[in-house]
């Protein structure tokens, strides 16, 4: 599939203090599409300036204050809708996802006419221990609460249609966004599938740790009860 011809396909990249990785990440994505929206979530480093210099076609938005990954993703999705997007790809800015994997998710979404496609990482020894613990605890609990059955509920690489986004629009501002998306997708009986992806871990202190896992669990109860 020639992704450059996909005019209504947009990639959303939320970024917070990613000056070390953002250039490389964007240079890789730009090979597949020009429709890239970076949301700098109040970084205190040069993420915003670096992102702006990578390619003039990339839209770089800035949150004046750090709101969290969920809020940054929402801003990116809203921007994509303004630009007429029909397919939204959400990818992390720390370089842990490969754009070629993102394209596999896009292909599956289009081929099978799905609402949402989730990336699924393999829990091997490369994944930092605390992250692995947090993920497995959450995955187990989410299976109990949601109609969606995934082996990795915290992977940030996801592709969805703009109609699906409008329905599952999340409220969470932080890392709970991935879980809220799943719970909402289950609520609306969305057509979904998952695709196995490769992951490169550059920073073992970023991402979902066991502490985030506990916070997400508390939120999970809140979403189910309220």
């Amino acid at each position: 599939m020639d992704s450059k011809q996909l005019k209504d396909f947009f990639v959303i990249v939320p970024a917070y203090n990613e000056e070390k990785n953002i250039r490389e990440v964007l240079q890789k994505i730009v090979l597949y599409t020009n429709n890239i929206i970076v949301v700098d979530d109040g970084s205190i480093d040069d993420t915003y300036e670096i992102a702006k210099k990578v390619d003039s076609n990339i839209i770089v938005l800035k949150h004046k204050i750090n709101l969290g990954k969920g809020a940054a993703l929402k801003t990116g999705c809203e921007a994509a809708l303004i630009r007429g997007a029909n397919i939204l790809a959400l990818i992390d800015s720390d370089g842990q996802h490969l754009p070629e994997d993102m394209m596999k998710l896009v292909e599956k979404l289009i081929e099978k006419k799905l609402d949402i496609v989730f990336g699924e990482r393999t829990f091997n020894d490369d994944m930092p221990f605390m992250m692995k613990m947090g993920n497995q605890l959450l995955t187990f609990t989410i299976k109990l609460f949601s109609k969606i059955n995934l082996s990795d509920t915290q992977c940030g690489l996801r592709v969805l249609t703009s109609d699906a986004y409008k329905k599952i629009k999340w409220q969470e501002q932080n890392y709970s966004v991935e879980t809220e998306m799943i719970i909402n997708a289950g609520k609306y009986d969305m057509k979904y599938e998952s695709v196995g992806i490769k992951t490169i871990y550059k920073d073992k202190y970023k991402g979902t740790t066991i502490i985030d896992g506990i916070i997400i669990l508390i939120n999970l109860l809140k979403w189910k009860i309220l």
Partner: peptide
């Protein structure tokens, strides 16, 4: 928190509708 998020987003998206990508950046 909700008000802060809405106002931060509004500010980030300002001008996006009318400008091309190059102009916007």
């Amino acid at each position: 928190r909700r008000k802060l998020e809405d106002s931060t987003r509004k500010e980030a998206l300002e001008g996006l509708k009318n400008k091309s990508n190059g102009e916007f950046n």
